[in-house]
Write a protein that binds this DNA or RNA. Structure first.
Lengths: 183, 183
DNA sequence: TTAAAACATGTCATTAATTACACGTTTTAA
DNA sequence: TTAAAACGTGTAATTAATGACATGTTTTAA
């Protein structure tokens, strides 16, 4: 079942909150949703066309300034229904995380491999930075209890991502400590 | 830089351990390496041809039984060099995990959404099963201290995957407990 | 002995995704 | 005032990946 085109559901999910242009949707992937999903505008515009052909969204043209045409997309009732169905349906496939570092590690045969320790150091630095970044985001996006309740799912996944990174950093640390001091 | 064709490196990594046929490589994705990376034979055979065209591998034909031809692939010196370079090079891109459940969660706005609790239960069941599966694998594949040392990288990533799943299950559990009892 | 399962190797069609190409408008700051 | 940055919408070429199509051999177990 391939990647099952999740982009269509992300677009529907975002349009379900408010009408947006293709450009707005593209920006959304640079901001919050970009933390855990990526898409380029070259993928978004054709997908908008397909969703509209299928009747899941519609658009109205608005003029910005003197003549710049913007297409503001709205979700339709059937689109909202499709979104609801997707969320309600089971999610039984735990997609294996394609982590390139983990893949490389698989080919390291012994703890004496000189490439191992530098690899672990690099990853510890990267994941420590990522953790700090996510913690800063949580503080910025959800500063109050009320804000957490207002957008509960988003709050949960940010929290989850922080916990995941914290685990990753901790595992790297423990692994570094467990490696015999060479020679 | 797209997906950067990691399959080629996986093939090189496996051939670096011992000569294998396309079929053997396909099987490897059903077993150990399949825990964290997927590939079908329809992707593997063309990739073998490309790697051979580029001089990174060669093959010899052997006859199995009366006339069944098997192509046994070997890594070349330049292939081994390419593999080494890939492993030694930095791995600075932390690929965002495309977890469909997390994506759905993003669109859940409040803790009273009736879809939320069933979703969390399903994921808890799935990740609990996955955790048990990985723990069983660890016991089976690495029963002794010696076996862990013999294939250290593989041991590390299995351990890592177990820790990751344990964290996931724990987070789901905590999240379920934190949700107000409705109504 | 015979049928199913496993072994073995390929191609083709389609979809998903990235990068690059392409064009034009509006706003903002030097 | 003018140039850069941001806004805004598309297409084309290429690559990666899946699922289906296609064919044949060998081994194993009923």
């Amino acid at each position: 079942m391939a990647q099952k085109n999740k982009l269509q559901f992300i677009i529907l999910g975002l349009l379900n909150q408010q009408p947006l242009t293709g450009y707005d949707l593209t920006k959304a992937f640079d901001n919050e949703i970009g933390e855990f999903w990526q898409a380029q505008h070259s993928q978004i515009y054709p997908q908008l066309k397909r969703l509209e052909d299928q009747g899941y969204i519609t658009h109205e043209v608005t003029i910005s300034g003197a003549k710049l045409e913007k297409k503001l997309y709205h979700i339709t009732a059937t689109g909202a229904q499709l979104l609801h169905t997707w969320i309600s349906d089971g999610t039984p496939d735990l997609t294996a995380t394609k982590d390139e570092f983990i893949l490389k590690l698989y080919f390291i045969r012994t703890s004496r491999d000189p490439r191992l320790v530098p690899m672990l150091y690099e990853q510890r630095r990267l994941h420590t930075d990522k953790l700090a970044h996510l913690q800063a985001r949580l503080k910025m996006v959800f500063p109050t209890k009320a804000s957490q309740t207002e957008n509960y799912g988003h709050y949960l996944i940010l929290q989850h991502a922080i916990g995941r990174e914290a685990y990753y950093v901790n595992w790297l640390q423990q692994t570094l400590l467990a490696i015999p001091k060479a020679r």
